[in-house]
Amino acid sequence: MLRDITIGQYYPTGSVIHKLDPRVKLAGTFLFIISIFTFKNYPGYIVSLIYLGMVIFISKVPLKHILKGIKPIIFLMVFTAVIHLFFTSGDDILFEFYAVKITYAGLKKAVFIIVRLLFLITGSAIMTYTTTPNQLTEGIEKAFGPLNKAHIPVHEFALMMSIALRFIPILMEEADKIIKAQSSRGADFEEGNIIKRISGIVSILIPLLVSAMERAKDLALAMDARCYHGGEGRTKMKPLRYTAKDYISYGIILVYMVTSVAAGRFI
């Protein structure tokens, strides 16, 4: 079932967006999310929609793929919207039926919530569709590099993230194998009484933990053997460097921020 979640999985198309420096995409996504929370009215969302559409078009990630990624979250969106719809008070009552009261303000809020969530998810998804986890990690490492001076181990965090990403598929496969092995020993995960079910789950979690620890130990040794000694004095095979397209993109992001916020707050 975990495999069905396509949101956030890198989708290579070789587009310009894919080739941008990850720092640009991080900044762009971050600012985009901020912008949609400043809007008070529809025009801002329209500007956002135009930009989002453009980015999707340029990224060459099929719209169908993006929509499929959103599917698992639809329930959450509808749920939040419904809550706002029914529980927002206001004078401008559109519909009333016994205790159920729907106001114009509530409807507006519900629509905004859906649009906001939709934009938020699509916007961040576009970043992960066009950026490999590794590039993302490197982008974060470089972007937060200055924090090193404040003795925050940015490099170590970034490396941890990238190693975690490498081991996720390995551990998922392992979990699958352990589940099958314990099922072969008659373990119950779905049926049976609660005690049996808990013992079934424990029989998966402990081996998984033991194996993860063992892998961590092995990996630490292998890193030691390959001269790892922290971030100090490290060079990079693929250092991040801005090129013309990155500066242009920063420009576009700036223009977007100004136009969308202006449209969303003042029109």
């Binding site: 352990i178 092995a181 081996p207």
Partner: peptide, 13 residues
């Protein structure tokens, strides 16, 4: 039908 997996020691818990 007993099934012993590869590296079965990883199922001890």
């Amino acid at each position: 039908v007993g099934l012993v997996f590869q590296y079965p020691e990883y199922q001890l818990f």
